[in-house]
């Protein structure tokens, strides 16, 4: 990479940007919360692969014909081509109701491929959401311990701040755009957590290596060292996120409707992960690690 500017010196801008996004996300959370899928709420979720553009009016007509009543906004289009429909029933559908629905589906949408029906009891949903929170918390804990052993605790904390930042950005995005949150979303957040750390560690590893060759005596020297490390690993950071993004975008565009929101979460998380490793984690570490070092300005005035 030839273009070089000091990333670490511009850290205030990056901190400000991420801070603003985080605060905005937090406000959205407080105002509206998540659009929880049936995995986390009791009721039935029916997904039909219609293989034709979803006409909400016709779906409503079908439901009325079967004597079903669903609240406003319970019918949504899914899939890249908008050819699948997701209907959310606040109550658990009985087997007879499911049969009626499938019969009507064939009648109203002859090209459909059949329905995917999910029913969850509130108790199961509660266990599931508790497990999701535990998984994120425990994964973070294990990662902190591992990095603290292999590197040092300041790296560990900076990496965790970056990964929480990524997880939070994805969650805010989903809250803001009212995208459905299901168990696969939890999987996506956990993957993002893994990738974010993976990405950060490659950079930290280079900083660690450069630190072995020279010991910075002033804050500015430390800044310069970290900047050099960032630019040395820049091609790798960009190329890697590009290849993983290729996979994620292809899955998003052509993969099945059931992993649609999953891959969307991944794409956002991957971009955020690449950004935070470079612009948040490393500058954060410099600020913390550099507190003990004298500033070059004072050192330069007293030669």
């Amino acid at each position: 990479m030839k273009v070089r500017f000091s990333i670490v010196q511009r850290r205030r801008w990056f901190f400000l940007l991420s801070g603003l996004i985080t605060v905005a996300g937090f406000i959205v959370f407080l105002l509206s919360g998540f659009n929880l899928g049936t995995d986390f709420r009791s009721g039935s979720r029916v997904q039909m692969q219609l293989n034709q553009p979803v006409d909400v009016g016709r779906v409503e007509q079908m439901l009325r014909a079967g004597g079903f009543s669903v609240p406003q906004g319970a019918i949504t289009a899914a899939g890249t081509r908008g050819d699948a429909v997701v209907i959310r029933f606040p109550t658990v559908l009985s087997q007879a109701q499911q049969d009626t629905l499938q019969r009507l589906e064939k009648q109203y949408f002859p090209r459909s491929q059949g329905a995917d029906v999910r029913t969850v009891d509130p108790i199961v949903a509660k266990i599931l959401s508790r497990k999701a929170v535990w998984a994120v918390a425990l994964a973070s804990l294990f990662i902190v311990v591992y990095i603290a052993i292999r590197f040092e605790y300041r790296f560990a904390v900076a990496a965790i701040v970056a990964l929480l930042h990524d997880a939070f950005i994805v969650m805010s995005f989903f809250a803001l755009f009212r995208l459905e949150v299901d168990t696969l979303f939890v999987t996506a957040v956990l993957t993002i957590v893994g990738y974010s750390v993976n990405d950060t560690i490659v950079i930290f590893d280079r900083i660690r290596e450069n630190l072995k060759a020279e010991k910075p005596k002033t804050f500015e020297e430390l800044e310069a060292l970290v900047d050099r490390s960032l630019w040395q690993t820049m091609s790798r950071s960009i190329n890697t996120v590009l290849t993983v993004l290729i996979a994620a975008v292809m899955l998003f565009l052509f993969g099945g409707a059931s992993i649609h929101t999953f891959t969307l979460a991944l794409i956002i998380g991957l971009v955020s992960g690449a950004y935070s490793s470079i612009f948040i984690a490393s500058p954060l570490w410099v600020v913390w690690r550099g507190r003990a070092l004298p500033r070059a300005a004072t050192a330069a005035k007293t030669p």
Binding site: K131, A132, A135, A139, F142, T187, L190, N198
Partner: peptide, 28 residues
């Protein structure tokens, strides 16, 4: 060393997912 460190952390995250999760999360 870089590859080992970065893969170990992701592996740890996956192992925790398997340990705590169920169903879809485990398959992943």
């Amino acid at each position: 060393r870089t590859i080992l460190d970065s893969n170990t952390t992701t592996f740890l995250a996956a192992a925790v997912m398997y340990w705590v999760g169920q169903g879809d999360i485990r398959g992943f």
